[in-house]
């Protein structure tokens, strides 16, 4: 089943409202929410796919009602409790009961620049040979669903499920989010940019030559004729 975050193509969201380049954060607590999230990431208890999934599995009514950084905070609190970093009692009381054994991993101010500069590359040594080359016709899975975990994380949006497209390029071998989000290892696969004609995706495309390109893992794809 689709989740509320998978909103590509949805109707009814109204106008997009541009804003000036100088507006980076929209409330005082937003940069703090970003920084707390990044700092907790360095404790090494989860990966980027886990944290995306934590936001995506908020109840649909919460996902829709929460602001962007409220979703981040809710997802972070859930992960901290699930991984045993904090207890529900500590969250409820607003105070720690003792220090954490993970404290030695705390990101210090002088480490920040290095951590942000190093990032977290998602490419891995190849384990599976690429099945497709640029120009090949492919079809995506019929259902935008996780193959390992019912209702689990996947990066195939529902609007592009069961659609025929063509390979634009191979990006290399990347961690498979469907596995990594659920503690099933990296399981790297060839990752491709795949182009779909707008007419393949939408009943009323805006223009006959418009396209949408998605980055998709090999296991999301099968050959098409």
């Amino acid at each position: 089943m689709t989740r509320v975050h998978d909103m590509g193509g949805r109707f009814g969201d109204g106008a997009v409202v541009p804003e000036p380049e100088t507006e980076v954060f929209h409330a005082d607590w937003h940069p703090r929410a970003l920084a707390v999230t990044l700092a907790c990431g360095s404790l090494g208890q989860w990966n980027i796919d886990t944290s995306r999934h934590a936001r995506e599995r908020l109840a649909p009514k919460d996902y829709a009602a929460f602001s962007y950084y409220e979703k981040w905070m809710a997802g972070l609190a859930d992960m901290l409790v699930e991984k045993g970093v904090l207890t529900p009692e500590e969250l409820a009381s607003g105070h720690a009961m003792g220090t954490s054994p993970l404290a030695e991993r705390k990101m210090t101010a002088d480490a920040v620049a290095g951590v942000l500069a190093r990032g977290g590359p998602a490419d891995r040594p190849a384990q599976i040979a690429p099945s497709f080359a640029a120009g090949d016709a492919v079809r995506t899975r019929r259902h935008a669903e996780n193959a390992f975990v019912d209702g689990g994380h996947t990066r195939l949006p529902a609007y592009a499920a069961g659609a025929q497209g063509r390979i634009v390029r191979l990006h290399g071998h990347h961690v498979l989010p469907d596995a990594a989000a659920h503690g099933l290892g990296d399981r790297p696969e060839p990752l491709y940019a795949v182009a779909f004609p707008a007419s393949e995706l939408w009943a009323r495309p805006e223009h006959p030559r418009d396209e949408v390109v998605l980055d998709l893992w090999q296991s999301y794809l099968e050959p098409a004729r």
Partner: peptide
């Protein structure tokens, strides 16, 4: 909520408020 989380995490020794300032 973020203030509350920051307080708990700081008390547990898991985040350094100076590092947060640096990220921001």
């Amino acid at each position: 909520r973020v203030r509350a989380l920051e307080t708990i995490l700081t008390e547990k020794g898991l985040i350094d408020p100076a590092a947060l300032d640096e990220i921001i």
